[in-house]
């Protein structure tokens, strides 16, 4: 009898755990180079999806995104000017220096409305931020309009071979739980216009951005992501971009 009681207690406590603690939270990530030519300039895209299979999803508090070391994000010519975060929050990305723009993206967030979970599409803009500690800082400006109009600034730090993104608590309605990020797509590079002064004149140019490494390891270019959720869960995912064909520079 005591054994049966013990099993019952274990089963009951298991049933009471939140969905994410069951290991039900799954994360998927994707990465791509566009175009895909070894040694050639490219646009790097990262994407991830978090499925918590829960009515009350735990908010995302951070993402750590690992990329191939030889991608050389730090030495790229993206983000050669910094946008002050206060200015970004107050006036939006259009008032930031053009040379601070690094890319864009999109996200899907889930907002609890009473007993309903409502999805909201969010536009993202990636900008270089000031560097208080010598590391490259990226600001992710997120703007959603419907059903909740809000903007928020996420901060990210470029470390050796990885980007650490911090997601602040995103409040929706008074008393309601924080907004949960369930999908995100980030693009570094693309069609950006920068300006430089040549012989006293302001001249526009397009930054080269990031280049696909000139050599590809066996198994392709590996990317990985770990997601930090407010409930303490840390689901992770990884992917690889298959080795592209050598680029013919001629």
């Amino acid at each position: 009898m005591p054994r049966a009681r013990l099993i019952a207690v274990v089963l009951a406590s298991w049933a009471c755990l939140p969905g994410s603690a069951h290991g039900a939270t799954t994360a998927k990530m994707s990465a791509a180079f566009t175009p895909e030519h070894l040694g050639a300039p490219t646009v790097v895209s990262f994407g991830f999806q978090i499925d918590q299979s829960s009515f009350d999803p735990a908010p995302l508090t951070g993402v750590e995104l690992a990329f191939p070391h030889n991608l050389r994000l730090a030495t790229s010519d993206l983000g050669v000017s910094a946008c002050p975060p206060d200015q970004l929050e107050a006036l939006g990305p259009k008032r930031c220096p053009p040379n601070s723009h690094m890319g864009n993206g999109s996200a899907i967030v889930e907002i609890a409305f009473g007993t309903e979970l409502v999805e909201e599409a969010v536009q993202l803009t990636l900008l270089a931020g000031p560097s208080p500690n010598g590391y490259l800082h990226i600001l992710v400006y997120a703007k959603g309009t419907y059903p909740v109009e809000a903007d928020v600034v996420l901060t990210a730090e470029l470390l050796h071979g990885r980007i650490a993104i911090t997601v602040p608590p995103i409040l929706s309605l008074p008393g309601a739980p924080s907004v949960a990020v369930t999908e995100m797509q980030l693009t570094l590079g693309g069609h950006l216009t920068y300006y430089e002064t040549v012989k006293g004149r302001r001249v526009a140019y397009h930054p080269v951005g990031v280049a696909v490494p000139s050599t590809c390891p066996s198994g392709g270019f590996r990317f990985a992501a770990t997601f930090m959720l407010l409930d303490g869960e840390r689901p992770s995912s990884h992917t690889a971009v298959a080795c592209p064909q050598p680029h013919d520079r001629a």
């Binding site: 730090a74 000017s81 910094a82 270089a128 931020g129 560097s131 010598g134 490259l136």
Partner: peptide
């Protein structure tokens, strides 16, 4: 060496 102002051209 220590790099100063990394977000500069």
């Amino acid at each position: 060496a220590r790099l100063s102002s990394p977000t500069s051209p």
